[in-house]
């Protein structure tokens, strides 16, 4: 039987959904509080920089963004199909290109910190 690479992609998709479920609400709450400028002591450059400058912090940030991006990209592809758009190969190119560019940029910015 021909080997399938589907289990790997499904594993990543499931991991992405789980990671997104665990971290996105709290992250969105943090940026919401920052957007409301609740207090100048919150969400400071020093605090975020210390976290992102550490190799473990970089790894955590990269993992979260990578998995969220590819999970959301795949689901966006399915959602667009569910709304009746049948140009699947074009949609796939757009969403996976966005995820690829996002992954690359994340890597570049993390290495610059």
């Amino acid at each position: 039987m021909a080997k399938s690479n589907k289990p790997i992609f499904w594993g990543l998709f499931a991991a992405g959904g789980t990671v997104t479920a665990f971290v996105t609400p709290a992250l969105a709450l943090v940026t919401l509080i920052a957007a409301m400028r609740y207090s100048p002591d919150m969400f400071t450059y020093d605090a975020i920089h210390v976290f992102a400058a550490h190799w473990l912090g970089k790894l955590v940030i990269f993992g979260i963004i990578l998995l969220s991006l590819w999970h959301a990209a795949h689901r966006t592809r399915v959602t667009v199909h569910d709304f009746g758009v049948r140009a699947d190969s074009l949609v796939a190119i757009v969403v996976y290109a966005l995820a690829g560019i996002g992954t690359l940029l994340t890597l570049v910015y993390l290495l610059r910190i």
């Binding site: 992250l27 689901r75 966006t76 940029l105 994340t106």
Partner: peptide
Amino acid sequence: TCLFIFAYTFLLIWGLKRLS
């Protein structure tokens, strides 16, 4: 909901750019 999460990830990447 995935559209919001997709867009939000790019907000995080933008923040990461400015942090760097």
